[in-house]
Amino acid sequence: EEAIQNFKALLSDMVRSSDVSWSDTRRTLRKDHRWESGSLLEREEKEKLFNEHIEALTK
C-alpha cells in the first residue's frame, strides 16, 4: 500500500500531461530516486496506476 502511494505521488509530480505514453514516461520516471520505492510493485500494477493517473488528468 505504501509503495502504491509513493508511486502515485511520483506520477503526480512528474506526469502533468495526458498525451504521454507509458514507455516514454517510464524512462523519465526511472531517473527519479523514488522509482526504486516502487520496486515492490509489479510492472503491470505500475502501468495500471499510470493509466488511472492519465484518466484523471483528462477529466
Results as ranks from 00 to 15, higher is better:
residue 1 E to C: 11
residue 2 E to C: 03
residue 2 E to F: 03
residue 3 A to M: 07
residue 3 A to C: 04
residue 3 A to Y: 06
residue 4 I to E: 07
residue 4 I to Q: 07
residue 4 I to A: 07
residue 5 Q to H: 10
residue 5 Q to Y: 08
residue 6 N to F: 00
residue 7 F to K: 07
residue 7 F to H: 06
residue 7 F to M: 01
residue 7 F to V: 00
residue 8 K to H: 03
residue 9 A to K: 13
residue 10 L to K: 06
residue 12 S to M: 11
residue 15 V to C: 03
residue 15 V to Y: 00
residue 17 S to E: 09
residue 17 S to L: 01
residue 17 S to M: 05
residue 17 S to W: 02
residue 19 D to M: 03
residue 20 V to A: 13
residue 20 V to I: 08
residue 21 S to L: 05
residue 21 S to I: 03
residue 22 W to R: 05
residue 22 W to F: 07
residue 22 W to Y: 04
residue 23 S to C: 05
residue 24 D to W: 02
residue 24 D to R: 02
residue 24 D to E: 14
residue 24 D to N: 08
residue 25 T to L: 14
residue 26 R to V: 15
residue 27 R to Q: 14
residue 27 R to F: 07
residue 27 R to G: 11
residue 28 T to K: 14
residue 28 T to M: 15
residue 30 R to F: 04
residue 31 K to P: 05
residue 31 K to M: 11
residue 32 D to V: 01
residue 32 D to A: 00
residue 34 R to W: 04
residue 34 R to T: 02
residue 35 W to C: 05
residue 37 S to P: 06
residue 37 S to F: 07
residue 38 G to M: 14
residue 39 S to N: 14
residue 39 S to Y: 08
residue 39 S to K: 14
residue 40 L to T: 14
residue 40 L to E: 13
residue 41 L to D: 07
residue 42 E to G: 15
residue 42 E to W: 02
residue 43 R to G: 15
residue 46 K to I: 04
residue 46 K to H: 07
residue 47 E to V: 05
residue 48 K to M: 10
residue 48 K to P: 03
residue 49 L to M: 10
residue 49 L to E: 00
residue 49 L to C: 05
residue 49 L to H: 02
residue 50 F to C: 02
residue 50 F to M: 03
residue 50 F to R: 01
residue 50 F to E: 06
residue 51 N to P: 04
residue 51 N to M: 10
residue 52 E to C: 06
residue 52 E to K: 05
residue 53 H to W: 00
residue 53 H to T: 04
residue 54 I to L: 09
residue 54 I to G: 04
residue 54 I to S: 08
residue 55 E to R: 11
residue 55 E to D: 10
residue 56 A to Q: 13
residue 58 T to M: 08
residue 58 T to W: 01
residue 59 K to R: 13
residue 59 K to S: 11
residue 59 K to A: 12
residue 59 K to V: 12
